[in-house]
Design a protein around this nucleic acid. Structure first.
Length: 870
DNA sequence: GACCTGCTGCGGGATG
């Protein structure tokens, strides 16, 4: 469904077919219809269906794009119900949960406005609607505990905290519905698991509680709904009274175009910065009112911001930058400026993927690979936030192969395909935290293990939990397991003792007020990384200046006093480092280093990889459709001439010799994490036969093994190396799994309450938390090997850091594919980025740049000759 | 003289 519009492609996203509203609207909907009529609006079909389902007492999940009125789809139901039954208007009735503090205030406003505007026979909804997050004043929090509002907008963490106050828990019987906003953001995380447990607890406290969610499109929406409503309700999917999946049929149209380099001959084969297209990006910015420029890393935002203002000093003050390591005050300033239309552009990371909608944004510029279709759509949707407006997305390739990626991404968008997100299971650390929280919230009466187990099993995350695993968690909460029995701080829950001194062994409560306090303050599943505060000023006397943000210790430690670096869009000079603060002053020099942060590494999604393979299949057949493919055609032809194209049904392997040695390039196209694992696995399996040394490199398209001597590997040898047999065992052996697991254990130790963060106001140095969690890992490994949290950390390493399921699927797929082994004389366009990457580990950056440049010139010359000759 | 991939998110409470 593609139409041409002034040379740009307009992609109309086709949503799934849905049944039209069958019966005429229920009479109970009249106040909502009036509410819409008064505003000159017509309700969408999906809103009507959501209200009907709510009034029929069903759970549900609404899938609709932002700006479509999805908030009203789930908010009108409770309002209509209240108008119909005003007698039941006491106590906390609605809990609205949002993953972002920043969303709470805006949501509160919309909820209040709708509640104030709706009426039936002159009667209005007379509700107190409030919000509560970590930022809420403690006096307000106290008042909310004594007299809860009728509706509360809060976060998953604050919901968990609510459950620790006996006075609130006693009042929760009045709760009628929980609404979870942006459920897709929580689904595949431990925050989601924590919320599943809280929902299960709330269902015990308020039988008949309804659960509704709001979600962006996912590949597994049905599963997303089942996880949200819990296994019991999920079993009734398809029944008339079962949970309802309500989808908005029409999405906002997206207009996508790619900035195609004017001179593809001189466009880099490798790299991810993309600064080469700076002039075209500035041109694109000037053609629109306000732009968001998304980059994939924080350091990239700093570099792009500096580059833009260096090229166009007149834009100073009109553009800004935004990422997760900037101080919140600065970020809020930028967000407000964006909302008011005071800035022309903001260079940002995923920090602006979600959150408050900025009406003035009319174009999104994506620099580099989006890695997945979901992310691309999410970002595109940040623009055109006005009724009837179109989302406009400009794709900026940072290397030649990304042209193929952007062409493929548009194919996937046209098909309406989006990645799935899978829920987390058996995160025992989260369960332990929850058990202690529930024990606190039940006060002197305590809670029984049976109740806790039943509630855990009523979640998707712990539906399959064994009695043994649960007993282990109880034991851990009671005494920290066998190894920590001597330490009272790990005897967190204790049997209830009656007034006559009799022990009630079947019920448990928190051991002390002190432990309750410590627990409340460490609720949550997000681990903050070790970082230093960057502050303007000299650090002498009382002259404490503005906080700019945070930076990693590793970066600061490589600087000496007087060094210049750019941060938060300024050039600053390091004055001194004290405690966990780096004091800086404005620098006189015009350029400096750019900090880098160690963050998550997002691999290319399977969906996008599949779409790329299809485009390469086309190319193999000589079809190069669209501006992106036309531009990259000469390069793909070089790849075909020197070797082959990686494509569907074929595993391409290239053996190439350079002056660094012998290289093997393998292209499974499964994303960075899988390739890292595969590279290590293959190297390990080769070395098991004949010991030798390797240097490894992995990217999103493939991996590279380099050796001093040539590897003689035929097809049967490759089949053995890529076998799924003993996969997990071999991976754990070859990847220094103990070290990875120990790292992963930091999060688990924090979530399970083995290590506690410092008191607010007197934060413990993050390094101390790390040191103690490392210590625990060692102690438990030695003295409590059966500790289930250790096993969990090994599991998480396989799942999260290696994507072992995806790797297994990839290997199974490879087993059915033809293997094509080529021996190109030179590095091919696909090999070049991997070669450059592997070189980086061996050389200083200066030499690296030189070497890469020289090689590039040679290859381009060769490629030019081939193209001219062919 | 040098950055040249590596994101995001939350969180206490009593007293003056």
């Amino acid at each position: 469904m593609t139409t041409r519009q002034r040379g740009k492609k307009t992609v109309v996203v086709k949503a799934d077919e849905i049944a039209p509203a069958t019966a005429p609207p229920m009479t109970g909907l009249e106040p909502a219809l009036t509410w819409f009529r008064e505003r000159g609006w017509t309700p969408h079909d999906f809103q009507l269906r959501a209200w009907e389902a709510y009034l029929a007492g069903r759970d549900g999940l609404v899938n609709a794009p932002t700006g479509s009125g999805k908030t009203l789809a789930v908010w009108m139901g409770p309002l209509l119900e209240s108008l119909a039954k005003p007698e039941a208007d006491e106590g906390l009735k609605i809990l609205w949960i949002t993953p972002l503090r920043a969303l709470a205030g805006d949501t509160l406003g919309s909820l209040k406005a709708a509640a104030e505007g709706i009426s039936l026979g002159g009667r209005r909804v007379d509700w107190r609607i409030e919000m509560r997050t970590g930022d809420t004043a403690s006096s307000t929090k106290k008042r909310q505990r004594e007299k809860p509002p009728h509706a509360l907008v809060t976060t998953p963490e604050s919901t968990a905290l609510l459950l620790t106050y006996p006075e609130i828990v006693r009042q929760l019987g009045s709760l009628r519905a929980v609404i979870v906003d942006e459920w897709h953001e929580l689904l595949s995380t431990k925050r989601g698991v924590q919320l599943e447990l809280c929902l299960s607890r709330l269902r015990t406290l308020a039988p008949g509680l309804r659960t509704w969610g709001l979600s962006a499109t996912l590949g597994n929406l049905g599963q997303a709904m089942e996880v949200l409503v819990g296994p019991k309700a999920a079993a009734t999917v398809g029944d008339e009274s079962g949970p309802a999946l309500v989808r908005q049929a029409v999405s906002r149209p997206i207009e996508i175009r790619t900035l195609v380099p004017r001179d593809i001959e001189r466009f880099p084969w490798a790299g991810h910065l993309g600064i080469r297209l700076l002039p075209q990006v500035i041109e694109a910015m000037e053609s629109a009112g306000t732009s968001l420029l998304f980059t994939n890393t924080r350091s990239q935002t700093e570099i792009w911001y500096q580059s833009i203002i260096r090229a166009r000093p007149d834009l100073i003050g009109q553009i800004a930058l935004h990422h997760g390591s900037l101080d919140r005050e600065l970020r809020t300033w930028v967000e407000n400026a964006l909302r008011d239309g005071r800035v022309r552009g903001v260079v940002c990371t995923s920090s602006l993927d979600l959150g408050v909608d900025f009406a003035p944004v009319d174009q999104v510029i994506q620099i580099g690979s989006p890695k997945g279709i979901g992310r691309l759509l999410q970002r595109a949707g940040r623009s055109g936030h006005r009724p009837g407006a179109v989302s406009r997305l400009v794709c900026v390739p940072t290397n030649a192969l990304e042209l193929v990626e952007f062409a493929a991404a548009q194919d996937a968008v046209k098909l309406g395909a989006v990645e799935p997100r899978y829920p987390v299971r058996m995160a025992l650390d989260v369960l332990v935290q929850h058990m202690v929280a529930v024990a606190i919230g039940t006060g002197e009466a305590g809670v029984s293990p049976e109740e806790l187990l039943a509630e855990a099993r009523a979640t998707h995350a712990f539906a399959g939990m064994t009695d043994e695993a649960f007993a282990w968690c109880m034991d851990f909460a009671c005494r920290g397991g066998p190894a920590l029995t001597a330490y009272p701080q790990y005897a967190r829950i204790v049997p209830v003792v009656t007034a006559t001194g009799a022990v009630v062994p079947a019920r448990f409560k928190i051991a002390s007020d002190r432990l309750a306090l410590v627990h409340r303050q460490s609720i949550g599943t997000i681990l903050s990384d070790s970082s230093m505060t960057v502050r303007l000023g000299t650090g002498v006397g009382m002259g404490g200046g503005k906080v700019l943000g945070t930076i990693e210790e590793g970066f600061i430690s490589r600087l000496t006093v007087g060094d210049t670096f750019s941060f938060a869009g300024r050039l600053v000079q390091l004055v001194k480092v004290r405690e966990m603060t780096a004091w800086v002053q404005p620098a006189k020099r015009k350029s400096g280093r750019v900090p880098s942060w160690q963050g998550g590494r997002m691999p290319l999604s399977s969906l996008l990889a599949t779409a790329i393979r299809r485009r390469l299949d086309d190319a193999e057949q000589g079809r190069f459709e669209g501006a992106e493919m036309e531009a990259v055609e000469p390069l793909l032809r070089v790849q075909m001439q020197w070797s082959h194209l990686p494509r569907t049904g074929v595993l391409l392997i290239e053996h190439t010799t350079t002056r660094e040695g012998h290289h093997v390039f393998v292209y499974p196209m499964e994303g960075r994490l899988v390739h890292e694992g595969l590279a290590a696995l293959v190297a390990y399996r080769i070395a098991a036969g004949s010991p030798r040394s390797f240097s490894l490199a992995a990217g999103d398209h493939g991996f590279n093994l380099a050796t001093p001597d040539e590897l003689h590997l035929d097809e049967p040898a490759w089949r053995r190396l890529l076998s799924t047999e003993r996969l997990a065992e071999d991976l754990l052996l070859c990847l220094n799994a103990a070290q990875l697991a120990r790292r992963q254990f930091r999060e688990i130790a924090r979530v399970a309450g083995l290590v506690v963060p410092g008191f607010p106001g007197a934060p413990k140095r993050t390094r101390h938390v790390q040191a103690s969690s490392d210590l625990f890992f060692d102690v438990l490994s030695e003295f409590d090997a059966g500790n289930m949290l250790l096993a969990q950390s090994a599991r998480e390493v396989l799942d999260r850091q290696l994507e072992v399921d995806r790797m297994r699927e990839a290997l199974e797929r490879l087993a059915t594919q033809r293997i094509e082994i080529t021996r190109p004389e030179r590095l091919t366009p696909f090999a070049f980025p991997l070669w450059a990457d592997s070189l980086r580990e061996q050389l200083s950056s200066e030499k690296w740049t030189d070497r890469v440049q020289r090689m590039l010139v040679r290859l381009e010359t060769a490629a030019g000759g081939e193209a001219a000759g062919g």
